[in-house]
Every structure is written in structure tokens, then in C-alpha cells.
Design a protein around this nucleic acid. Sequence first.
DNA 1: CTCTCTGCAAAGTGTTTGCAGGGTC
DNA 2: GACCCTGCAAACACTTTGCAGAGAG
Lengths: 147, 147
Amino acid sequence: MADHKKRFEIIIQKLRENGQKITPQRMAIVKILAKSTGHPSVEDIHDEIKKDFPTMSLATVYRNIVLIKSLGEVLELGFPDGRNRYDGNKPYPHPHVICIKCKKVIDSNLGSLDDLKDEVAVETGFKILNHRLDFFGICSNCMAEKV
Amino acid sequence: MADHKKRFEIIIQKLRENGQKITPQRMAIVKILAKSTGHPSVEDIHDEIKKDFPTMSLATVYRNIVLIKSLGEVLELGFPDGRNRYDGNKPYPHPHVICIKCKKVIDSNLGSLDDLKDEVAVETGFKILNHRLDFFGICSNCMAEKV
DNA sequence: CTCTCTGCAAAGTGTTTGCAGGGTC
DNA sequence: GACCCTGCAAACACTTTGCAGAGAG
């Protein structure tokens, strides 16, 4: 089974277990999140779904993302421009590389921060629950453009 | 000369070099940013200054932060709760450790990410300009509280 | 049949901007 | 004296919320 198909089933299952109802809108949102390799914003998701579902409301997207986030099944990428992006395919913390020109976001597969996390915990006395590591720069496409 | 005094002079000097005028409001803002070990929000800064300067406007704080940010003399910490914090004492990227209960932010002195940055650049083809590394958790104070 | 979910519109929150008067250089 | 800066209030962008009707289980 394809990876994003699996993720879709997992999220839907988790919703069911929590007594949530499976509405068509909810399925459409989960479907996009499950294969969210493009790190869509709420508006991206809304636009995408409106193609087949013209009455879909932005509020519904927001509400469902809050819900799925509370189940730990989607990762929110806080964005400097105030437009958050979401990753429901890899909902655990992992490094992102972000182009400040075209806003493209790609995942990096490098570097576990577990050691550093432990060191920081000792240094500060915190119990570390979570982290985020983002690199900002210019992607090769944007660099190639002579603007 | 104390560290934050030095930072104050550096920022003021940089403003002068850029042809900006040194107003009392601006000095007050720079003074707080220069010793911003507490990582104040815009509202924190505004509140602090209003004690001696009751007519100080929020808009002025925002405008000055944009200006100083454009000179590279203050670091903006994007916050999940949408209330940004600022560090004008160490304006270069460095790891932060954030308590999700009391919102306290402290600096970590560990870990250079230069190696990782180079690896990510090779992996993705990006030219990396910047990064951010934040750990979220519970500080020892909040852990001690039986709430 | 019950109880949650949706769509709509209004309200909220943090930030930015237009304008006219005031202050720095 | 020229031009930038400030304070005020309105405008903005994103997100959240109240309500009444629709739909899942």
C-alpha cells in the first residue's frame, strides 16, 4: 500500500477511535494531509478541495487541522510570513529547508538531534518534548533565475 | 563596558550610519533590545517603555523593530502562539529552549550547526542563509509545580 | 434520534499603513 | 528648514468562534 494511503487510513482510524465522525469534508482534508509532501497551507488545502466541493468552508479546514493536530497526526510548520504549513505525512519533528524566494519547503533526511536534545536538557534543566529545525535559503531554481 | 551597553552603542551607531534619526523613543527601544536576555515581545517592550513614556505607541515599536531587523541587529523568534519575541543582544541564529507552560525562553550555548548546514546544502542544492533551532519543553520551575 | 459537524458571518489577535503634526539634524 | 519620525486610528491577514441547520452513526 502506498505510503500516503497508509497514512490516510491511520489518521481516519485514529479519528474513529476518538469518536469523531467521518464526513466527506473530513476525508478530503485528511486525504490531502496524508500526502502533504508539498507542505500545503490551510488555504492551499481549501483551494484544492473546493475544486470538487465548492461549498467547503475555510473554517472547516481550520477546525479539522486543530483536531488532527491534537491527535498528533499532523505537524504544523510555523512560518515567518504567518501562513502556517502542514505535514500529515511525516507528523514527527524533522528538519525543513525553506526557500525564502519561492516559499518551497522540502524535507531533509539528515541529522538526528537526539544527542543535542539530551545535552540541552542537561544544560537547562528542561524536559524537552519537541523541537524544530529549519534552514532558510535560496533553492537552486531561484538561484538560476537572473532577476 | 557592559555587554548590553556595547550592543546599544553598536545599534545606535548603525542607525546613524544609515541616516536614521535618533529619537528618544528609538533610544528607549534600542536600549531594551540591547539587553533583551528575556526575549521580550513587542508588547513587553511597549509596556516597559510606557512606564516612563506614556504616549509611546505600539506602531512605533513595530516600525523600529522592522528597521532594526533590516539592519540585522535584532533576531526575531517566531512563536507558535503568534506573538514574536526579539533578541537584540545576540542577533545571530542560536538555539532557544522554550517552556510551553510559562513561555520562558532561554538561550542554549551548545551545538554549532555549521556541519549540518553544509550537509543540508549539499543534500538539497540550496544556498543556506539562515536557520533556526528551537526546543520546546517544560522548565524546572513549571515541572516542580503540582498543578 | 442524538449529537457532532458544517457553512456562514462576525469577532479576535497580532501587525502594518495613511495621515497630519512634531522633532532631529 | 527639510525630511524623517511619531501617535492615532483604520486597515490587514490569518485564525477562531457563535449559531442554526444538515448529516453521521
